[in-house]
Amino acid sequence: MAIPSYATRGERLWHYAFRGLCTLIFLFLIGPLLVIIPLSFNAEPYFTFTREMLSFDPAGYSLRWYEDFFTSSRWLNSIKNSFIVGICSTLLATVLGTTAALGLTSRHMPARSVVMALLISPMIVPLIISAAAMFFFFSKVHLAQTYLGVILAHTVLGIPFVVITVTATLSSFDTTLIKAAHSLGASPSRTFFKVVLPLVTPGVVSGALFAFITSFDEVVVVLFVAGPGQRTMPLQMWSGIREEISPTILAVATLLVLLSILLLTTLELLRRRSERLRGLSPG
């Protein structure tokens, strides 16, 4: 993308205009996330920068909304619920999804594309429709307003992510490595633990992370299927935004942005590790 030395003036102008345009679009993408971080330290109950904040007066900043968050039993309880539901549904989705991915990557899997389309469909069907359908059905079988109901619903939503990620990892798995290990004298179990598992684990872990964040961020299904006892953090945020709008929401939002940064870093490290193990990239 460097400008060649023979570029005309018009081309140079276009080059810089294009760069400027891209900068603006990047700003649109990332700016909103950057705005809320300082706002969450607001000393006043406003959703905007106060005069003190703009003049960098320490009095304009405070941790009161974080304090509010960490001392509120409603928020803490909702975090607990989010983790219970998130961890259980992730485990279930990962086990079911990984097993299925093993079958899907088999050369002899019949009707693969149809099965795949079905397994991915929870990602495509609008959440409100899944939520309504699960609400009707779960009420009939007494699963509505229970932890089990919410966990099963979130397992359904997490499955496509596990299936996509693990299938991608497995289909790029080089089976000659297994033969190589055998020919070098490794036992089947040693081959599995020393060769197969290290290569496949990053894919399974990233699939599980996708499933977890899906559950951790999900509000529509929870809105319909969960009862008052299963209020998760997104549901608490949802009612917070609709009812009493306080900067505590912004403090929670900031913490969640940090969480996604953490998640993204983990995913990137996993990706690099798997590329290195496969010898796709040096170092």
């Binding site: 809320i36 961020d217 935004i241 929401i249 912004l250 929670v252 939002a253």
Partner: peptide
């Protein structure tokens, strides 16, 4: 989080 982006 979708809710975070909507809040912003």
């Amino acid at each position: 989080s979708l809710l975070v982006r909507t809040t912003t």
